[in-house]
Design a protein around this nucleic acid. Structure first.
Length: 345
DNA sequence: ATTCCACCGGAATAGCGGGATA
DNA sequence: TATCCCGCTATTCCGGTGGAAT
């Protein structure tokens, strides 16, 4: 019953957008100078998880490239590429200038290459830019006359708090595109589009789509995940339409799938920390450190553990309750996540 | 009030790994 | 092959903070 599974992928960009025309228009207006070989002012895309920020950025730049194919577009996910070196490297990859680049190339060589590649306009989409650790990289890029920035983040205030003054003042005046959560009907409409592309006709009913949209509470990524999971379950059972019990099973499944994937990305020591916290339910730092040291062969330093813990908090796997003395750690509970608490992405 | 203590996280540094170079 | 170079991770060192103990 699944005709085209690509439609369910995270990086799928639809050929038409639903419900985001204002945002697309605002962004393309800002990018318009690129059509005349001019650099565009920086633009920000703000909004919670699963509201289409990344999708709209890709879509809009795809449209732009249809009009002006010479423009180069580089997509950088700052969650993975969080150092200055890696950001620059990814940008160079997108414009095919990575020949002979390696870890031992001098520091400014990368930047120099990018600065020299002035033959074409370059658009740098920096996704999850609040995860970028060396924000000086933004300053570097902004200085280049042929690089236009599209910056994506969850929350405006948190992002600006993490920037240093130089960068902040330079970016203050740029365009901001704000994305709100989808309503249930809006999300159902989006899912309907995906379903007609991905599935055989009549594989899913309108009422089921509304159920999915409701369960996803405005998060398109979760909604699409549920739809995909339900379709796969139905397919495995050899039926030609999504059944209600396949749907019921898919709803919790899609929510935990993301978490399981993040857990797989942890290294062994981080995993031990997570297990200790999960078993204890809630635990004080000193007990946590001691239990960790008991379980593991060659324990890391407490300072390193603290680095691990902050990272896991960022991943939304655990949360820290309280500050300083008397702080405890616990795993983030999976249900009961209010809409406005989406800090991850 | 003063001292102590647990905890956090910034900054500097060491060591590792791996491609480049001679 | 030996050596250089540099990004990256873990470690060392430490100052700050605020509740607890005296």
């Amino acid at each position: 019953m699944i005709v085209d599974g690509r439609v369910f992928r995270e990086d799928f960009v639809p050929s038409e957008v639903v419900h985001r025309h204002d945002e697309v228009n605002l962004l393309s207006e800002t990018l318009e100078p690129l059509l005349y070989d001019q650099r565009a002012e920086p633009s920000f895309l703000f909004g919670p998880t699963g509201v289409g920020k990344t999708c709209i950025a890709r879509y809009t730049l795809g449209q732009l490239r249809e009009q002006e194919p010479d423009v180069r577009v580089a997509y950088v996910n700052c969650w993975q590429e969080y150092t200055r070196f890696r950001v620059l490297y990814t940008l160079l990859e997108a414009i095919d200038r990575t020949r002979d680049v390696h870890r031992s190339t001098p520091k400014d060589e990368l930047f120099g290459r990018l600065a020299d590649a002035t033959d074409r306009q370059i658009v740098a989409i920096l996704d999850e830019v609040d995860q970028l650790e060396e924000t000086a990289a933004l300053y570097d890029l902004h200085r280049l006359g042929h690089v236009s920035l599209v910056l994506i983040a969850n929350r405006e205030d948190e992002l600006f708090a993490s920037l240093d003054d130089r960068v902040r003042s330079r970016l203050r005046a740029s365009t901001r595109v704000r994305f709100d959560r989808y309503g249930t009907e809006e999300l159902a409409a989006i899912l309907e589009r995906r379903a007609t592309k991905a599935l055989e006709p009549d594989a899913v009913t309108d009422d089921q789509l509304l159920q999915i949209a409701d369960a996803a509470s405005g998060d398109a990524r979760v909604g699409i995940g549920i739809l995909r999971s339900a379709a796969r379950r139905a397919q495995r059972r050899g039926v030609d339409a999504i059944t209600d019990d396949a749907l019921a099973a898919a709803i919790p499944d899609a929510r935990t799938a993301i978490r399981r994937k993040t857990l797989e990305g942890l290294i062994e020591h981080q995993r031990v920390l997570y297990d200790v916290i999960a078993e204890a339910g809630e635990i004080e730092p000193s007990d946590l450190y001691r239990e960790y040291e008991r379980r593991v062969g060659a324990p890391k330093t407490e300072r390193t553990l603290r680095n691990y813990l902050t990272k896991m908090v960022h991943y939304d796997l655990i949360e820290a309750v309280g500050e300083r003395r008397g702080r405890t750690y616990r795993v983030v509970d999976e249900d009961a996540r209010p809409d406005d608490a989406a800090v991850d992405s």
